[in-house]
Design a binder for these strands. Structure first.
Length: 958
RNA sequence: GCCCCCGUAGCCCAACCGGCAGAGGCAGUCGACUUAAAAUCGACGCAGUGCGGGUUCGAGUCCCGUCGGGGGCACCA
């Protein structure tokens, strides 16, 4: 009993309030830091622990690399971080060696742009932002191994990024062995004559420059004069993956132009098959796998060559079986053969009698004029126009090709529905089986020949379904009657035999444009010699440090000025660019490469550096890599590629980061530097926390926290406002920060709330008003252990009832399963349920049984580590619970002695009967039928059927 | 246009292999404490699972159609 209420105007002195939570949280955060509680020992190197046996059971959990933005975090940002922390903590408590840390992807545009505006060095801004970011996440009590923090901007880190670049640069893809090999082995093959030079001369007869040029063509990193995506408004080129569907830059939303420039490329296409096929070995969301599959875009088909006036048009088709139905051809307007093939004047039409169809000429008097006009029109169309209007257009170029299967003369067109960037930039058009070709053919009056018999009742136009081939016979080949697959095999064999083509595979995936004309990124470890050839710096010249420059920004241009040329900031650092080095043949003058790597570079391999963050000899010690990332077939199956045990992040990186990272990892694997074939065995996409925003009648945002709801309408200062749903952001005036949540409720409450809002992979709206529920739960739990008035521990060693044990062990079993399956919302609900039970039974009693209180505290620990530590400590345990124990369920309390069966009659519950748990089907059936309500309903009639589902229910069908 | 995911109570969400629609939280109502209020504590479930069909003894769960929301791809030959 508490004494009289006099003077208790405030809350009891020892209640779990935000202030108490704050003290506890800081105290335990200091304790963990002082004790290095989250340090995960390595097998070898500086982070190995002498004398202590290393658990073979390990877990490597990682969050996607955050960019330390200067604007600070809102409550949505840490969702995944807390999720991984809970998961990591649970496993750490069960005795596993858990590696969890967090670093920063710190190169990138914002710091550079800020530098350009203010003159502050990007490093200064970046470091300040990282510090700010760390303050925010430290307040949340994330159990990171602080020794393993890295930032991509650390010279010691990017030194190894450059080193990996050199590994890739110094490699080529051996198609026979299907793996990357050191470039030196290729050179040896040339030198020994195992491999022939392009022009057949002996290797030794070639000049050094010639030799280098041949070698350079095989490297996995190469310079190419190729169409790249130039964004004048950004002042840099960007990768294909960074261009949106409407032809703008992912970042900044500037127009992007295709332009031929000399640029660094990475030969990711060599890995297309492996990147695609190995998806099957990964435990990833299907959605992400599908996106990668689509991006790689493998299609199997054939290349077919069509003769035209002594020249040849080569096309790629996935439907070589329809070759007999090819009635015309189309080249992309920018196809290099167009100029060569365009006729002097319009020929007579195919039958040689009449003039050429006037629909084909675009009204021009000569084919050259038609082509020029059409090209002009096509180039004026933006990407967006092209997509919006799918109306087919094109012109005849006055030439006829010959279909190799039947010698038919078929007209050649140019049309912008054929893209230069895919396949060979030319197609054979088969209107009978392709809707695009059908549309074009009907518009221009071209022949349509069906070569697949449409299914019965087919009423569409082009028929793309399966069916027997028809109209597909020549002198020595007939496909007629064959299904699509068999017809493909037959025609490909025929094409190969007659040298008209061959089976082949095409990919949408292009090589990775790897250079950016910016300042705040990793410099290339490359110099150019007097011949202008790139030379990889030897390892001992690393790191190549970023020089200081006066002006951090690349020259940007009018976003629409397609003719501008990139001018990188590093080019202005002439003292740095012009360098004298001794690369083995005496000091010579060289010119440094002035590009920097794209931001993706640093995040391609950070999981490897987390493993061995201060290894100065290697980027990662092989023994440590094998321990943390190596394949574990015994646990994950014979196909296990290895990699992180859990990687959590947003789905927006589905293609870019995750594809690049896999690519680098595979190169490192091929070269023998890592034992794992994939970086991320298991991937999980957390959802997004979104928020409501409100606009007033003028369309301006009003502070969301000041809006009141009444009867489904919303008011701000009495004025009705409109509700919107979406992102959290300063401009939307709806930002809620983790800092204010920690201040108002404590970090543990915030963590618990975030986890209990719903499944981790769901997106959902933030609701500050709901947080109080989580806070009340922790208060109630606290109250079971600590007397709010006196602060004394109110736990005693009393005996539990059977009911207590059943409740407890059922909870333990359920919570363990939920934690292991990342179902933190239901784990939380089970803890609340148990807590409510204990409160009900012992809340008013003198004391809470220790046997209930302790497991409850331990099970809470992954989600609310601070308050759990505090209570565990007050319960008399001097050691931290970071490493457990975690309660284990006692099987005997998981089974009930009796089971209550609902009895349905025709599917509707009519009665209930309780029988012994071990009762057989017949006993349950008998008990059900003996029930008076059921007997009454049956009214003496024999039931038609009685279904007994053991442990579930009985259904009586009458 | 094509493909994928999701629609359960006023709101956020549970519900295993098809087996009693409700675990948990918010809000609400009632009660206790209080001079009062807040805080706290206790009690109370209002929907039949977006809609229409189908399969089944039985459907939130499986199938078909449809509507709504979210996402991906988009002339890829």
């Amino acid at each position: 009993m508490t004494e009289g209420a006099a003077g208790t105007e405030t809350a009891p002195a020892h209640r779990y309030t935000a202030a108490v939570a704050g003290q506890i949280e800081r105290r335990w955060q200091d304790y963990w830091a002082d004790h290095g509680s989250y340090r995960a020992p390595n097998p070898a190197g500086t982070l190995a622990e002498e004398g202590a046996p290393l658990p073979s059971d390990k877990l490597f959990v990682q969050d996607m690399f955050p960019y330390p933005s200067g604007t600070g975090l809102h409550v949505g940002h840490p969702l995944g971080f807390i999720g991984t922390d809970v998961y990591a903590r649970y496993h750490r408590m069960t005795g596993r060696n858990v590696l969890h840390t967090m670093g920063f992807d710190a190169f990138g545009l914002p710091a550079e742009q800020y530098a350009a505006q203010t003159g502050t060095h990007p490093r200064t801004t970046t470091e300040a932002n990282i510090e700010r970011y760390l303050q925010q996440i430290r307040r949340l009590g994330l159990g990171h191994d602080e020794r393993r923090r890295i930032a991509t901007t650390d010279v010691e880190y990017y030194r190894w990024t450059q080193w990996i670049f050199l590994q890739i640069f110094n490699s080529y893809y051996d198609e026979e062995q299907d793996r990357a090999r050191p470039i030196g082995e290729l050179e040896k093959e040339y030198a020994e004559g195992v491999r022939a030079t392009p022009d057949g001369r002996a290797w030794s007869e070639l000049s050094r420059v010639e030799q280098r040029e041949i070698i350079d063509e095989h490297r996995l990193v190469y310079i190419s004069e190729a169409p790249v995506n130039w964004a004048p408004g950004l002042g840099t080129v960007v990768a294909n993956e960074e261009v949106t569907a409407d032809g703008r830059s992912d970042r900044g939303n500037f127009p992007v132009f295709r332009k031929n420039l000399r640029q660094w490329m990475m030969r990711i296409t060599s890995y297309a098959d492996r990147l695609l096929d190995d998806l099957d070995r990964l435990d990833w969301p299907e959605k992400v796998k599908t996106m990668q599959r689509n991006w790689i875009g493998r299609s199997r088909g054939a290349n077919v060559r069509f003769p035209v006036d002594g020249k040849t048009i080569e096309v790629f088709t996935t439907r070589p079986d329809t070759l007999f139905g090819a009635t015309y051809m189309v080249l992309a307007p920018e196809h290099p053969l167009v100029d060569e093939l365009t006729a002097e004047e319009w020929p007579a039409s195919a039958d040689g009698q009449t003039a050429v169809d006037e629909r084909w000429t675009g009204g021009a008097t000569t084919p050259a004029e038609a082509v020029a006009d059409y090209r002009r029109q096509a180039s004026r169309k933006s990407e967006l126009d092209r997509q919006e209007s799918k109306e087919k257009t094109g012109v005849f170029i006055g030439a006829y090709a010959v279909n190799p299967v039947n010698d038919a003369r078929i007209p050649v067109f140019i049309a912008d529905y054929v893209l230069m960037g895919y396949g060979t930039g030319a197609i054979m058009a088969v209107p009978g089986q392709d809707q695009r070709d059908w549309d074009f053919a009907t518009k221009y009056g071209l022949d349509i020949i069906r070569t697949v018999q449409p299914a019965e009742g087919f009423e569409g136009e082009a028929y793309t379904g399966d069916g027997p081939a028809i109209n597909s016979t020549n002198a020595d080949l007939s496909l007629d009657g064959l299904g699509i697959e068999d017809a493909k095999k037959a025609i490909v064999a025929w094409l190969e035999e007659h040298r008209h083509g061959e089976g082949t595979v095409q990919y949408k995936l292009r090589d990775w444009l790897f250079a950016r004309q910016r300042y705040w990124g990793e410099p290339f470890p490359i110099v150019y010699d007097e011949n202008g050839l790139p030379i990889a710096l030897p390892e001992e010249h690393l790191p190549v440090e970023l020089p200081d420059v006066a002006d951090y920004a690349p020259t940007t241009f009018d976003p629409d000025d397609a003719d501008s040329e990139p001018q990188p900031p590093l080019a202005k650092a002439t003292d740095w660019v012009e360098v004298t080095l001794d690369l083995g043949d005496g000091p010579k003058k060289y010119r440094r490469d002035t590009n920097v790597m794209p931001q993706w570079a640093g995040s391609c391999w950070y999981q490897l550096r987390y493993i061995d963050p201060d290894n100065h000899e290697r980027f990662v010690d092989p023994e440590n890599e094998r321990y943390w990332l190596g394949p574990r077939p015994a646990e994950h199956g014979v196909n296990d590629p290895g990699g992180l045990d859990l990687y959590v992040g947003g789905v927006e990186h589905a293609v870019l980061h995750l594809l690049y990272s896999r690519f680098w990892h595979k190169v490192l694997y091929d070269l023998g530097h890592v034992s794992s074939e994939e970086p991320y065995r298991r991937l999980y996409n957390q959802g997004y926390i979104q928020a409501f925003a409100y606009t007033d009648s003028r369309g301006f945002y009003v502070p969301a926290e000041e809006v009141e709801e009444k009867d489904g309408r919303f008011f701000h200062n009495g004025e009705e406002v409109k509700q919107e749903y979406g992102k959290m952001g300063k401009s939307l005036k709806n930002v809620v920060t983790p800092d204010e949540m920690s201040r108002n409720y404590g970090a543990d409450t915030f963590r618990f709330y975030e986890m209990s809002m719903g499944p981790l992979d769901d997106s959902r709206p933030w609701a500050t008003k709901d947080v109080v529920g989580s806070h009340r739960f922790l208060q109630r739990l606290w109250r079971l252990v600590v007397d709010e008035e006196t602060g004394e521990v109110r736990v005693a060693d009393t005996e539990l009832t059977d009911d207590d044990r059943r409740q407890l062990h059922r909870t333990i079993a359920g919570v363990r399963e939920d934690y292991a399956e990342l179902r933190f919302n239901t784990a939380g609900a089970k803890l609340i349920e148990l807590n409510n039970y204990v409160t009900k039974v012992y809340g008013a009693a003198a004391a809470t049984p220790r046997e209930l209180a302790e497991p409850l505290v331990l099970m809470l620990a992954p989600m609310c580590p601070h308050v759990a530590e505090e209570l565990w400590n007050r319960l008399g345990h001097p050691d931290s619970l970071v490493h457990g124990p975690f309660p284990v369920p006692d099987e005997q309390y998981l089974v009930d002695e009796t089971v209550e069966y609902p009895i349905q009659v025709n599917g509707k519950v009519r009665s209930r009967v309780t029988v012994a748990a071990e009762a057989g089907k017949d006993e349950v059936r008998a008990a059900a039928l003996a029930d008076e309500k059921i007997a009454a309903l049956l009214d003496g009639a024999e039931p038609r059927k009685v279904i007994v589902v053991p442990g579930r229910l009985v259904n009586v069908v009458r």
